[in-house]
Design a protein around this nucleic acid. Structure first.
Length: 647
DNA sequence: GTCCCGTTGCAGCC
DNA sequence: GGCTGCAACGGGAC
C-alpha cells in the first residue's frame, strides 16, 4: 500500500498563487494534506536591517496570500511559524508526519546556506525535497554555467539566454487546495540566540507575544507591525498578489506605455504617478511572478509592433530589458556568493580607498561597523541619509526613500553617485546598507550590483560621467515639482532657485518663508514662522574635481577586493595620497582603513524613524556616531574640535 | 594593436 | 533637439 504524501509547502520569495512552479509541483503529488507555511525567524527579524515600510509590505503580502488560500479551501490559510526554519522544520516533519517539503529555489547567498542546512535535516528525517525555480527568467546557476562565470554585462546575459530554454509561460493559479491536516502539535519552542536588534531605532516596545511559535493566539496568524514592536509604516505602497495583479493589468491596458517604455528616458522626478511600473517590490516578495510580468509585457510588445512597425523599444532599455538586468545581478551573486555583497574578497569589485570604509568581521568577513576616517565625511553621510545635504534634489530623493520606500531608478543613480564617486567619496557599502533598510524592493543581488555599478567599482567604469544635483533634475523637471513635494519648505521658491536655493538673495529667501542657513540642525529662525533649509554641505564642483582625481588614481592602482594588498593593508603604499591622511578628512579621499586596524571612531548604520515628510527629523535623529554636540560655531566631536567649513 | 561599444553626464554650441 | 569636446575606462571583436 502506498502512503499518500503529506506536504509542507514552504513559501519564501513566492508569496502568490499564480505561476508558482513550486506549488504546482506540490499539488502534482496529489497530497493527502498540504500545509502552506511561512517561517518567520526572530533572529532574522531582529538582526536584518529592515525598516517598517518593508515589514509592512511583507505583512500585506502574507495577509493577501492567506486570504486567497482560504478562498481555495475554507480550512486552509497561510500558517505563519515564528521560529527559524532550521529548528522548526524538523519538529514539524515529526509532528505533522510530513513526507515532502516543497519550496522555490533561492540563490541569495544567505538563503543557499539556510536551504543547504534544511535540505540536510530533511534528508536525515527521510523527507523528500522538491525545489523549483520561479524567481528569475533564467535559473541563475544555469546562466552562470553557460556564461562561464558571473554575469557582468547585459550582453553576456543576452548571449547566454539564447542558449537556454525560452522563459516558461506563467502557470494559472490552482482552483483548489487539499485540506491542511491537524495543526495541533506539542513541540518545544526554540528561542533564538540573544538578539542584536539592529532595528532598535524602529522598535517602540519589547514584544513578548512574538516569542511564541504560533503567535499570541496560537493560531499561526500573520503578525502585525505592532506585535513586532515596530513603529507604523508610512509608505503609500501596499503589498499583496491581488494589488500586484491589478497594477500589472492597469499597465498592460496601455500598450503604448508598455511597448515604447525606455528606462533612460523615464523621468526620475515624476510622482503621482511615477514614470516606471513600481512593480519591483512585488517581484522581490514574489507577489508578482516575473514570468507573468515578462509574458504579459512581451505579448503586448509583439502585438503593438505588428500595428506600429519600428516604434517599439527593445532590450536592454525596454521593460523586458529591465528584467534581464535583474537576472544579470542574480547571476553575479549566484556565482560569487556572499562576497558579491561586499568589496572584501570580491574579485570583480575594484578597491577604492573610500571614506567610511567597512570594518569586516574576522570570522564572517561581513561588514559589521565602519571606520570613521574623516569626521566630516561621517557628517556628510548622515546628512545624505537624513535628506539634509542642502542639495534639494538629493534631499528630496532621500526623503522620498525614507518615507515611501521607493525612488525611481535614476534617482537612485543620483544619490548613489553623489554619495560615492561624484561627491562624498564614501564607501558604497554605507549607501547599500541604507538602501537595504529603506527600500521596499531591496534585493540583495540588485542592490549590491547597482551600488557597485554606480560607484564604478564593478559593471561600469566610466567614472567621469558624474550626475549633477542641479542640472540633471532640471532636465526632467524645470519647475522643481518633485522638490516642492518632498522638500516642502522650499515650496515657494521660484524655479530659478529650486535646485540651488543658496543662491537666492536673503531678502527673497525670507519672503518665500524659508531661509538657507546652517547644517540641517537648525529648526527655526528666532521663533518666527520662517522655515530653515540647510546650506549645501560642500561646493559640488570642487568635490566633483577631487573625486575625479581620486578615481583616476584608484583606477591606475587597479586592485580588486581579492588582492592580498587589500587584506594586509599594504594597499596604502600603492596610493600616494600626497598628505591626504586618515585624519585630514575635510578634503580629498581619506586613507581608509580596512581589515584589522580601526580609525579614531567607528560607526554603525541605524534606522531613523520614518515619519511623514513634514515631520522629517534632522540628521541628529539618525544618531551621529561620533557624538556631535554644538559648541558655539564649532562642532565638538568626542573631544575633537572640527572647524566648520563654510562655502 | 586598433576600433567600437557600453541601458541612463555635462557644457557649450548650433 | 542634436552634435561635439571633455579627458578617458574596460572588454570584446577583429
Amino acid at each position: 500500500m502506498t502512503v499518500k504524501p503529506r506536504v509542507l509547502y514552504w513559501f519564501r520569495t513566492d508569496l502568490r498563487l499564480h505561476d508558482s512552479p513550486g506549488l504546482k509541483a506540490a499539488l502534482d503529488l496529489y497530497p493527502e494534506v498540504l500545509y502552506p507555511i511561512w517561517t518567520w525567524d526572530p533572529q532574522y527579524v531582529y538582526n536584518t536591517r529592515v525598516g517598517p515600510n518593508r515589514w509592512q509590505f511583507l505583512i500585506d503580502c502574507q495577509n493577501d496570500l492567506s486570504t486567497n488560500i482560504t478562498k481555495l479551501n475554507s480550512k486552509s490559510k497561510l500558517f505563519v511559524l515564528r521560529e527559524a526554519p532550521q529548528t522548526v522544520l524538523p519538529k514539524l516533519f515529526k509532528a505533522w508526519r510530513i513526507t515532502h517539503l516543497v519550496f522555490e529555489k533561492d540563490t541569495d547567498a544567505y538563503a543557499r546556506d539556510r536551504d543547504h542546512e534544511v535540505t540536510n535535516l530533511a534528508k536525515k528525517a527521510g523527507i523528500t525535497i522538491i525545489c523549483r525555480q520561479g524567481r528569475n527568467l533564467y535559473d541563475p546557476d544555469e546562466l552562470v554555467d553557460i556564461n562561464g562565470g558571473p554575469t557582468m554585462t547585459i550582453a553576456q546575459v543576452q548571449s547566454a539566454a539564447k542558449k537556454l530554454p525560452a522563459v516558461p509561460r506563467p502557470l494559472p493559479a490552482p482552483l483548489s487546495l487539499p485540506d491542511p491536516g491537524d495543526t495541533s502539535f506539542e513541540i518545544d519552542h526554540s528561542l533564538p540566540e540573544p538578539l542584536l536588534d539592529r532595528n532598535a531605532g524602529y522598535r517602540n516596545s519589547k514584544d513578548s507575544s512574538y516569542m511564541s511559535i504560533a503567535g499570541p493566539n496560537g493560531d499561526f496568524a500573520v503578525p502585525t507591525l505592532k506585535e513586532l514592536g515596530i513603529t507604523p509604516a508610512t509608505t503609500p505602497h501596499r503589498g499583496g498578489e491581488s494589488i500586484a495583479l491589478k497594477n500589472l493589468a492597469d499597465l498592460i491596458s496601455d500598450p503604448n506605455y508598455i511597448a515604447t517604455f525606455s528606462k533612460p528616458e523615464s523621468a526620475p522626478t515624476a510622482f503621482s504617478p511615477q514614470s516606471t511600473t513600481l512593480l519591483s517590490p512585488h517581484l522581490h516578495f514574489g507577489s508578482l511572478s516575473i514570468r507573468k510580468f515578462y509574458w504579459d509585457t512581451e505579448d503586448t510588445i509583439v502585438s503593438f509592433s505588428k500595428r506600429h512597425k519600428g516604434k517599439a523599444t527593445v532590450p536592454p532599455t525596454n521593460l523586458t530589458g529591465q528584467l534581464l538586468f535583474r537576472d544579470m545581478y542574480f547571476g553575479a551573486q549566484a556565482s560569487l556568493g556572499h562576497k558579491f555583497g561586499r568589496m572584501l574578497d570580491n574579485p570583480k569589485c575594484r578597491f577604492i580607498p573610500w571614506h567610511l570604509p567597512s570594518i569586516y568581521d574576522d570570522k564572517t568577513a561581513y561588514p559589521t561597523k565602519y571606520s570613521i576616517d574623516s569626521v566630516e565625511a561621517d557628517i556628510w553621510f548622515k546628512r545624505w541619509q537624513s535628506g539634509t545635504t542642502g542639495f534639494p534634489w538629493i534631499d528630496g530623493l532621500m526623503r522620498q526613500l525614507r518615507t515611501e520606500g521607493w525612488i525611481h531608478h535614476l534617482g537612485r543613480h543620483a544619490v548613489a553617485c553623489f554619495l560615492t564617486r561624484g561627491g562624498c567619496y564614501i564607501d558604497w557599502e554605507r549607501g547599500a546598507e541604507v538602501f537595504e533598510m529603506w527600500l521596499l524592493d531591496h534585493e540583495v543581488a540588485c542592490n549590491a550590483g547597482n551600488w557597485q555599478w554606480l560607484s564604478a567599482t564593478a559593471f561600469f567604469s566610466q567614472y567621469f560621467r558624474i550626475y549633477s544635483p542641479i542640472t540633471f533634475p532640471a532636465k526632467w523637471d524645470k519647475n522643481g515639482d518633485f522638490v516642492r513635494k518632498y522638500v516642502p519648505e522650499l515650496g515657494k521658491y521660484p524655479a530659478k532657485y529650486i535646485y540651488e536655493p543658496w543662491k537666492a538673495p536673503i531678502a527673497d529667501q525670507k519672503s518665500w518663508g524659508c531661509v538657507i542657513k546652517g547644517d540641517g540642525l537648525d529648526s527655526d529662525v528666532n521663533g518666527l514662522d520662517i522655515k530653515v533649509y540647510p546650506k549645501p554641505m560642500f561646493d559640488f564642483s570642487e568635490r566633483r574635481k577631487i573625486c575625479l582625481d581620486a578615481m583616476k588614481k584608484a583606477y591606475s592602482v587597479h586592485i580588486f577586493g581579492d588582492n592580498p594588498e587589500v587584506k594586509d593593508g599594504s594597499w596604502q603604499e600603492l596610493f600616494d595620497n600626497e598628505g591626504e591622511g586618515v585624519t585630514k578628512g575635510p578634503v580629498g579621499p581619506g586613507a581608509a582603513v580596512h581589515g584589522s586596524a580601526v580609525g579614531s571612531f567607528t560607526g554603525e548604520i541605524t534606522g531613523g524613524d520614518a515619519t511623514s515628510i513634514s515631520e522629517l527629523r534632522p540628521p541628529e535623529d539618525l544618531k551621529l556616531t561620533a557624538g556631535r554636540k554644538r559648541v558655539g560655531g564649532q562642532m565638538k566631536l568626542d573631544g575633537m574640535i572640527q572647524k566648520k567649513r563654510r562655502l
